[in-house]
Computed example of a mutant assay.
Amino acid sequence: MWNIDDADRRILNALQRDAAQSLDQLGETVGLSRNACWRRVRALEDAGVIAARVALLDPAKLGLGLTVFMQIRTNAHAPDWLAKFSTATRSMPEVLGVYRMTGDLDYLIRARVADMADYDRLYQRLIKKVPLSDVSASFVMEEIKETTHLPL
Rank of each mutant, 00 (worst) to 15 (best):
1 M>T: 12
2 W>D: 14
6 D>H: 04
7 A>T: 02
7 A>V: 12
9 R>Y: 04
11 I>G: 04
11 I>E: 03
11 I>A: 00
13 N>K: 14
13 N>M: 12
14 A>G: 09
15 L>Q: 07
15 L>K: 09
18 D>L: 02
18 D>G: 01
19 A>V: 07
20 A>C: 05
24 D>N: 04
27 G>S: 00
29 T>Y: 07
31 G>D: 00
33 S>F: 00
36 A>C: 02
36 A>I: 01
37 C>N: 01
42 R>E: 11
43 A>V: 12
44 L>H: 00
44 L>M: 03
45 E>A: 13
45 E>D: 14
46 D>K: 14
46 D>G: 10
49 V>D: 03
50 I>P: 10
52 A>P: 07
52 A>H: 15
55 A>S: 15
55 A>M: 15
56 L>H: 11
57 L>D: 10
59 P>D: 01
60 A>W: 13
61 K>M: 13
62 L>T: 14
63 G>Y: 12
63 G>F: 10
63 G>T: 12
65 G>Y: 08
65 G>N: 02
67 T>G: 07
69 F>P: 03
72 I>H: 02
74 T>P: 05
76 A>Q: 11
76 A>L: 11
77 H>V: 01
78 A>E: 08
78 A>I: 04
78 A>V: 09
80 D>Q: 10
80 D>N: 05
84 K>P: 00
85 F>C: 05
85 F>S: 05
85 F>G: 02
87 T>D: 15
89 T>W: 06
92 M>S: 07
92 M>D: 07
93 P>C: 04
94 E>I: 05
94 E>R: 03
95 V>W: 06
95 V>R: 06
95 V>D: 04
95 V>T: 01
98 V>Q: 15
101 M>I: 06
102 T>Q: 13
105 L>F: 05
106 D>Q: 10
107 Y>D: 01
108 L>F: 10
109 I>T: 03
109 I>H: 08
110 R>I: 13
110 R>Y: 13
110 R>N: 11
112 R>W: 08
114 A>F: 08
116 M>N: 13
117 A>G: 08
118 D>C: 02
118 D>P: 03
118 D>Q: 05
119 Y>D: 01
119 Y>S: 01
120 D>T: 09
121 R>T: 06
123 Y>A: 05
123 Y>M: 02
123 Y>S: 03
126 L>P: 00
127 I>T: 12
127 I>F: 01
131 P>E: 01
132 L>D: 06
132 L>R: 07
133 S>D: 10
135 V>F: 02
136 S>H: 05
138 S>T: 07
138 S>C: 09
139 F>H: 02
141 M>C: 04
141 M>F: 11
142 E>T: 11
142 E>L: 02
144 I>W: 14
145 K>R: 04
147 T>C: 03
147 T>K: 13
148 T>Y: 08
149 H>W: 14
149 H>D: 14
149 H>F: 13
150 L>K: 06
151 P>N: 14
